[in-house]
């Protein structure tokens, strides 16, 4: 792969798609999936920059991000389950306690 910057284009596109998903979707499971998308897009850009700059720190960062993503999804899904238990729904619309 001689043009690693092309990867950045893919990364940006996927990131923005993930962002749109986070904003548009109300189903918390899909929101979490979109967050995974965004994290992956960042990972890709890390690896691409690692290649561009001839360093390995990007790849190691990607490794850490993966760990964080795993922890995040575990806690996030735990939250969804807890919310589903109390509100009987997984829609972010239903969580309006912030307003009052």
């Amino acid at each position: 792969m001689n043009d690693p910057w092309l990867m950045l284009i893919v990364s940006c596109t996927v990131f923005v798609i993930g962002l749109i998903g986070v904003i548009f979707r109300k189903n918390l499971l899909v929101v979490l999936m979109s967050i995974e998308l965004m994290l992956n897009a960042v990972n890709l850009s890390f690896v691409a920059f690692s290649k561009i700059h001839h360093v390995l720190d990007g790849q190691i960062n990607a490794l850490f991000v993966m760990t964080v993503a795993a922890a995040e999804s575990a806690v996030g899904l735990g939250l969804v389950i807890a919310m589903f238990r109390t509100l009987k729904t997984a829609d972010s619309d239903q969580i309006q306690m912030l307003r009052d």
């Binding site: 499971l29 979490l32 690692s50 290649k51 790849q59 990607a62 795993a70 899904l77 389950i81």
Partner: peptide
């Protein structure tokens, strides 16, 4: 990732994301 030469990350991607996180999602 593999195309970028990051073979280790590519392997982890499949192991962690597909193998662990996605299973968790589907399970939930």
């Amino acid at each position: 990732y593999a195309l970028l030469g990051a073979h280790f990350i590519a392997a982890l991607q499949i192991l962690v994301y597909t193998g662990a996180i996605m299973v968790l999602f589907v399970f939930v």
